[in-house]
């Protein structure tokens, strides 16, 4: 969400400032606001149905953008100074922000805000780790404004909601000119900032199953500070085990911020499945997850540190799931 963008520039600018020569008059590199242009669009549509949104997007052939909370889009338009012909606001579509549970499935409307998700009684009861992740996005103000769909469609590798949705094997319901289609979330992201959505499609809904009663799930986020920061590494784990043998029946590991897209650590999962859950197997699974991650170095952290933390956090998350399972009476 919007929180990430300026920090890169600011920190880099501060680093550069140290090398300035004395006596040279330079503009303060920290403030780039004199370079920013106003967000610019010719038309702003507040649509009432997904079909209407798709129609406008098709007519304008890629010269329009969907806007929901605007926490990423407006900030980026301002920083990069790009304009579009039209913005299509989908936040007024009735029911698109609903969170409901039916037939063992939870349906999350695309414009539900992180605040809605974190306070939803459905999620707190049936998919708590998603509510947990939502309550750690950005800042309280951003959580009032941003949306689930925006978090996913912006396709940041650090999107906080992606790892917990990946471990629930979420499906994305997409509306387009040729009707609706469903895409599994792990093939939804195609690269940093890129998704399978074509320019005239909108994300309508995310569908996840309820958490199995004999399973537990958890989400951990590591940042440089507790608020207003992107994750350096985020990990979500879903675990179910045979209580007698302590063998792993089901394991899913979702990782954020350590690859071009949010990913599942499938080799680590394959390693652990059917194995007895003890210190050694958990540590080996964590190491496998480290090998699967491909983090980059940036102003927030080095790739070595991120990879190291993948191991620490995966181990911690699995242990936390185990604790929760042991406390559960099934």
């Amino acid at each position: 969400m919007g929180v990430g963008w300026p920090r890169n520039d600011v920190s880099q600018a501060v680093l550069k400032r140290k090398t300035f020569q004395k006596g040279k008059v330079m503009r303060d590199p920290v403030s780039k606001s004199h370079l920013w242009k106003k967000p610019c669009w010719e038309k702003y549509f507040r649509v009432k149905t997904p079909g209407e949104a798709v129609q406008i997007l098709e007519e304008l052939q890629g010269e329009s953008r969907v806007i929901a909370g605007g926490t990423d889009l407006l900030a980026r338009m301002r920083q990069e100074g790009f304009g579009v012909k039209a913005l299509v606001d989908i936040t007024c579509i009735p029911g698109l922000g609903e969170i409901r549970s039916e037939d063992g499935l939870i349906r999350l409307g695309a414009v539900a805000t992180p605040k809605d998700l974190s306070q939803s009684s459905v999620l707190r009861e049936k998919a708590f780790c998603l509510a947990q992740a939502a309550s750690q996005i950005g800042t309280p103000q951003i959580r009032n404004l941003g949306t689930l769909g925006g978090n996913l469609c912006n396709a940041s590798p650090a999107a906080d909601l992606a790892p917990p949705l990946l471990i629930f094997e979420a499906k994305a319901k997409i509306a387009g000119g040729k009707g609706e289609r469903e895409v599994p979330l792990d093939s939804f992201f195609t690269g940093p900032g890129q998704t399978v959505l074509n320019p005239s499609e909108i994300l309508k809904e995310i569908i996840i199953p309820e958490l199995r009663l004999d399973a537990s799930a958890t989400f951990l986020k590591l940042g440089r500070r507790k608020a207003a920061d992107l994750a350096l590494v985020s990990v979500a784990v879903l675990l179910a085990m045979d209580r007698k043998e302590r063998t792993c029946q089901l394991i899913r590991i979702g990782l954020g911020s350590v690859a071009p897209t949010p990913i599942r650590a499938k080799q680590a999962e394959a390693f652990l499945i059917g194995r007895r859950l003890d210190d050694r197997s958990i540590q080996e699974a964590a190491q496998s997850a480290m090998r699967e991650s491909q983090p980059i170095s940036d102003v927030r952290a080095s790739s070595q540190y991120r990879r190291e933390m993948v191991g620490v956090m995966v181990e911690r998350a699995i242990r936390k799931c185990l604790e929760q399972l042991e406390g559960k009476d099934v």
Binding site: W5, Y44, L74, A75, G138, T139, Q141
Partner: peptide, 27 residues
């Protein structure tokens, strides 16, 4: 910051804190 990070532009909209720099007036 004009980008939704700093909170200096916070106003209350229907009693809830919102960032006025990311809120369109028409909304």
């Amino acid at each position: 910051c004009d980008l939704g990070t700093c909170g200096a532009c916070t106003v209350l909209i229907d009693g809830k804190p919102h960032l006025s720099c990311l809120t369109l007036t028409a909304d």
